[in-house]
Amino acid sequence: MKAAVLVFPGSNCDHDAYHALKYVAGVDAEFVWHKQSSLAGFDAVVVPGGFTYGDYLRTGALAKLSPVMGAVKRFAGEGGPVIGICNGFQILLEAGLLPGAMIVNGSLHFVCDYVYLAAETSRTPFTGRIPPGSILKVPVAHYQGNYFADEKTLFSLEERGQVVFRYCTPDGRITEDANPNGSARNIAGICNEAGNVLGMMPHPERCAEAVLGSEDGRQVFDSMVSWLKERGK
């Protein structure tokens, strides 16, 4: 079982993701430079957070054109598990692997804080061990995490069970006050229709060990390990 952690110019959560995979979840992990055009030999892909290309033009807009993204599209197309965290989520949106786009936070502030997430589906490789209705305490750190999609897309995301996480109160209520950035319908994470590609703004890799303030994020990586094991990886 081997996971790829992509590294773009400006990635800055790559080492956190690597640490969570290797030393917490116990997965063999390897950094993959964005100029590589193959993901042969990998069973899962993490697109980590950061500020790829300094967020020039739009967040993730330049990173989507890196050679490795062609390989990510093929990998995802074959059903391989892909998770994009924060800037990684923004890259997956720009690359068209997930629907919608990110705009500036409604508050115009960079938000760096712990938030609560209500989990809605365990059908992704990263949430298999997180029963729907679970509440996770996970940090966010972003300026452009205000999820936007037109009404038709939002309807279809909900209809097809593609909303994976929503911002909620500590007791699980989906309220405006619990929404740190103004995201449509409190959306914090979505998956593609097949369920194998997940994008989320909060950082599970930053809260995978109790010493960090929460170990709820660990469940994302443990789910991935179980999913791969079940498939003989």
């Binding site: 705009i103 500036v104 936070n105 409604g106 508050s107 115009l108 205000n146 936007f148 103004g182």
Partner: peptide, 13 residues
């Protein structure tokens, strides 16, 4: 430019 209906917090500020 941002599409009609897309919130523009910078414009508002």
């Amino acid at each position: 430019t941002l599409k009609k209906g897309v919130l523009d917090p910078q414009g508002k500020a």
